[in-house]
Simulated assay, not measured.
Amino acid sequence: MKIFPMQQGMQTIALEAQNVSRQATGQQVSQDFAELLSSAIKKVNGLQKTSSELAARFDQGDLSVSLSNVMIARNKSSIAFEATVQTRNKLVDAYKELMNMQI
């Protein structure tokens, strides 16, 4: 599973933005960004669910799940969540900066 789906999505958007033959409207950019953010949050949620399920199976004594699998899944979900929180913080800071700009 990819830990940083948002980064790949943002790279795709950056490449599309460099394509000057297609003019994007504010509404299109807003929809693309909303879809990207929604997709990233769903992937982080999926990683957290997988981590919880593996931990529960390990606790129940499932021999097909090792402790290392549980720890790797837990670390993946933790890193993905931290990346999401940091991205959110940067977006909030950028929004505040835009709101404080003089027109």
Results as ranks from 00 to 15, higher is better:
2 K>W: 11
2 K>D: 03
2 K>I: 08
4 F>L: 04
5 P>T: 00
6 M>D: 02
6 M>K: 10
8 Q>P: 09
8 Q>I: 10
10 M>A: 09
11 Q>P: 06
12 T>C: 14
13 I>S: 05
14 A>D: 07
16 E>V: 12
16 E>R: 13
17 A>H: 02
17 A>G: 06
18 Q>A: 09
20 V>D: 14
21 S>P: 03
21 S>T: 08
23 Q>C: 10
23 Q>Y: 12
24 A>E: 10
24 A>T: 15
25 T>L: 03
25 T>C: 03
26 G>M: 00
26 G>I: 01
26 G>F: 00
27 Q>T: 12
28 Q>H: 01
30 S>W: 06
30 S>V: 06
31 Q>L: 09
32 D>S: 13
36 L>G: 02
37 L>S: 15
38 S>D: 10
39 S>P: 07
39 S>W: 08
39 S>V: 05
41 I>A: 15
42 K>R: 15
42 K>D: 13
42 K>V: 11
43 K>T: 09
43 K>L: 12
43 K>G: 10
43 K>I: 11
44 V>K: 04
45 N>I: 05
49 K>I: 06
50 T>D: 09
51 S>H: 01
52 S>L: 00
53 E>M: 04
53 E>R: 06
54 L>K: 02
54 L>N: 00
56 A>E: 11
56 A>Q: 03
57 R>H: 07
58 F>A: 04
58 F>I: 00
58 F>C: 03
58 F>Q: 04
61 G>T: 01
62 D>I: 01
63 L>D: 15
63 L>V: 12
64 S>W: 08
64 S>C: 04
65 V>H: 01
65 V>W: 03
66 S>P: 02
68 S>T: 06
70 V>T: 02
72 I>T: 09
72 I>A: 07
73 A>H: 00
73 A>M: 01
73 A>T: 02
74 R>P: 01
76 K>I: 08
76 K>V: 08
78 S>T: 10
78 S>F: 06
78 S>L: 10
79 I>N: 02
80 A>V: 01
81 F>M: 08
82 E>A: 12
82 E>R: 14
83 A>Q: 12
84 T>R: 14
84 T>H: 12
86 Q>Y: 11
87 T>G: 11
91 L>V: 02
94 A>I: 07
101 M>N: 07
101 M>H: 13
103 I>G: 12
